[in-house]
Amino acid sequence: MEQTNVQVMDNKTSTKKKRGLAYNLKKYKGAYLMILPALISAIIFSYLPMYGIVMAFKNYDVKLGIWGSPWADNYGFQHFLAIFKNPEMFKAVKNTIWFGLVILFGGYPFPIILALMFNEIRSKWFKKVAQTIAYFPHFLSWIAVIGLVYTFLAKEGPFNQLMGSLISGWEPINPLMKSEWFLEIMFVSHLWKSVGYSSVVFLAAITGIDPGLYEAASIDGCGKWKQVWHITLPSIKPTMVIILIMSLGGLINVNFEQVYGLQNAFTQLDNEVIGTIVYRQGIMGGKYSPTTAFGLFQGVVSLILVTTANWISKKLTEQSIW
């Protein structure tokens, strides 16, 4: 439907192109004027900064400007090589990938399971209430969620209360001050904030399944589990694949707000990620060229990941985001 529309319009476009640019601009003056603010905004705030990527290959000096600054060593690749030589940066790369892997693959099944559970609730009223409550954390800002985490994990807070009542002789601790707990806290707070809202897409897909399939299956003697396994999951496979591809870019793009918010004097050094290094050394520290290179490295890897995943998915399941 959409496809044919575009084609029809293309035909019209090609006949009109022959009448020349000036004619088109005049005839569609109103439409172009309406698009103009968006174009200007894209040029100034999205395309103009792309020129700044050159800084990654130079030794940027504020006084000389981007173009006037001298090129970096090693044919301009000095700052990229430094990523692997600098222990701090290399550790941040490792952390970013590790955190990304855990959050992506560890967290991936939960929204699907939650959607399946929502779907099984019989009472309409309870379903609505449960959804309303489960989606709520998504709308809080990350820093508000982190505020809640700090209170929850404080020595006199609910976490230690709970552990104290479960384990006799529990010595109250504050996990936020322990580096080795950082990833666990990140994972759980991420799940807490996003699991409900992430389930919406899957629930929509499940609701779209033809109920006749379930009826036929239950006549054939299929139980609940078999129905989920043989009907529900295969039916929502396209959604599952698309969501997986879209989140693959996140493998090297750990949420800056979350990491920065959770870091403190005790946990910061061991748990730096690419985003926080770019912020601290670049924006705070003024080392513009090395951090531009670092950010570019992240961007390129992320793009490669998404493109590759998309390509593989196209071959295997004929699902793709482009």
Partner: peptide
Amino acid sequence: GLPYRKQLTLFLMLPGYIPAGTIP
């Protein structure tokens, strides 16, 4: 029948896929 619709849309879409990065 807007001419250059495709090109304009692509121009507006592209930055979403190629962000310049924090520092630039």
